[in-house]
Design a binder for these strands. Sequence first.
DNA 1: TTGAAAGCGATACCAA
DNA 2: TTGGTATCGCTTTCAA
Lengths: 357, 357
Amino acid sequence: MKPTLQTVADAVGVSRSTVSNAYSRPDQLSPALREKIHEAARRLGYPGPDPTARSLRRGRVGAIGVLFTSALSYAFTDPYAVLFLRGVAESAERHGSGLLLVPLSEADEQAGIEAVRNAAVDGFCVYCVPASHAALDVTRSRGLPLVAAERPVEPGPDSMYVGIDEAAAARTVGSHLARLGHRRVAIVSDLLVAERRTGPVALDGPADIRYDVDVTRERLRGFAEGLAEGGVGWSDLFLVNAGTNSRAEGARAAGYALDRADRPTAVLAITDLLALGVLDALATRGLGPGRDVSVTGFDDIPEAAAAGLTTIRQPAVEKGAIAGRLLLDPPEDPAARQVLLPTDLVVRASTGPVERK
Amino acid sequence: MKPTLQTVADAVGVSRSTVSNAYSRPDQLSPALREKIHEAARRLGYPGPDPTARSLRRGRVGAIGVLFTSALSYAFTDPYAVLFLRGVAESAERHGSGLLLVPLSEADEQAGIEAVRNAAVDGFCVYCVPASHAALDVTRSRGLPLVAAERPVEPGPDSMYVGIDEAAAARTVGSHLARLGHRRVAIVSDLLVAERRTGPVALDGPADIRYDVDVTRERLRGFAEGLAEGGVGWSDLFLVNAGTNSRAEGARAAGYALDRADRPTAVLAITDLLALGVLDALATRGLGPGRDVSVTGFDDIPEAAAAGLTTIRQPAVEKGAIAGRLLLDPPEDPAARQVLLPTDLVVRASTGPVERK
DNA sequence: TTGAAAGCGATACCAA
DNA sequence: TTGGTATCGCTTTCAA
């Protein structure tokens, strides 16, 4: 039988309350008694108040939940996600809270719902989950503080949110390439369509927005608007869907564009990870980035610099840190609950003027 | 007032038990009543059974805790740690459990202890925590399943453990270099001494083992034994402590060795991350890896291959996955509770024969 | 198939 | 400073 508060109380000959105080409010006790209690606890192998019972009573758990689409392990595969998580972790740590990673399996939606229902947390951080995911409703219904990274989950003046102006940032990429003279342009992105396949897709235009993840849509819209400044129309864009946000699929997706007769002079990837794959695809074909084909990414993960990738820099760690802070200590002022972070276009060697042959 | 089971029960006009059954054992109810209950719950905004209360009653939480030394955010900084975590996450996900990251701050030991005490989990995975850390005792005292990665936390026949033969693996590194003719050798490692500073240190020898983290000690012992095969004695080794296990500190630490008058012909780093830093230091000085100075790492993180680093490959993701599995479903057979994984010496371009000038 | 009652282990208020 | 008592919200026999 595992020892409980009661066990210790009986052993010492005091009440439960007193033992509880010995742990939770040491100053409410005479040092002598406190020591006596701790000593007895040690002797009996009492590990201290049960966290679950304590949480139930206190109404506070001491952990925040982070929701992830796709496999939980994805969190550790995408460098950008890792940076974001790291920021969240820093805030949580400072606050003495743990970080509960909530699996949101793609294959089994019901499992994700259960996971959210069962998550013992004080608040949720939603990161890059498709708006249609049923688990989002469940998350909201938990009635806990909720902060969305990338996109407001619950529209409304007091919903919490930390993100960037995706479209505006993407627009700078588009106009950068437009100014360089690019007219034949391909875009590589995941989540363009519901299916997880890699290959060209046709979309009617930015007006016909059916993408599920707002980030995708907004970036795409930005790309298109920026390129339009150079006269590149929507119909001039060659869209390739990537099955997953990974380097390998980025390379595969790029292949569909690069192997066309009228090869694009620029490939815009919607994430750095995909862009690195695009660079791989160039290398395979003996094409020079920024010379034969310009390539851009988005996020500015550490690898991007080494690869000389032109991309959008956004403060990933800081974004996570802010998300954590909002969650653990929601500001009174509604205006402070919605944070928009700055971004920069970082121009490196992977983009250059289109060659006039 | 937040709705509870009771709220719903009252609304429908049934007892709490019945509502509880509607959620936890749907088959114990007539479909009609069940639907009626769910409908009422929806209407009242009842999010389903409270996870904390449920955990308390059931005695099971549905999450496993992972302990990390140093800042919690370190988990996301070290590529090897990320791989390991990913394995743990995969196992947890398959089991429908969450992953609670437990911060074990270095600065504030008491905070770490509290974090362990408060962690609502069904088991702990201890990863690379110094044996002396007070939180370890607390972890053990929780009386939950406990699996150690890297090193048995609670010695004993039924303690759970997944790791590699650190010393044997390190020995292959040492003898590899010995065979290549290296006699002036430096070792770069974190945790050689208690202080977190970067710089040369003197240790009496592998016999005088005072390192806190067993992994460090074992690898060091292996290095020494392997090198001894070529006649390199302990006193011939130049030891440099790295303040943290990071690329930057690896580079700094390497500087102390590389800038000596009698520059070593080989630098053994105790992790790949440090080794990458050593390579950086070589590059800064215009020295060629494997030519002017041989460099080895340990772990074989993805970046190692690209850098052409000779290193020890160990199955990081699998290690994590096994740790998770042991925790969530401890095998009856005591022998199956201790898993030793295979390792390989991967020879790449960063090591070569010593130049006879 | 449904309900009544007994906890799970702890905390907090209020007296003493 | 210490103790009594009433919960926290749910699950689980055991009867009905």
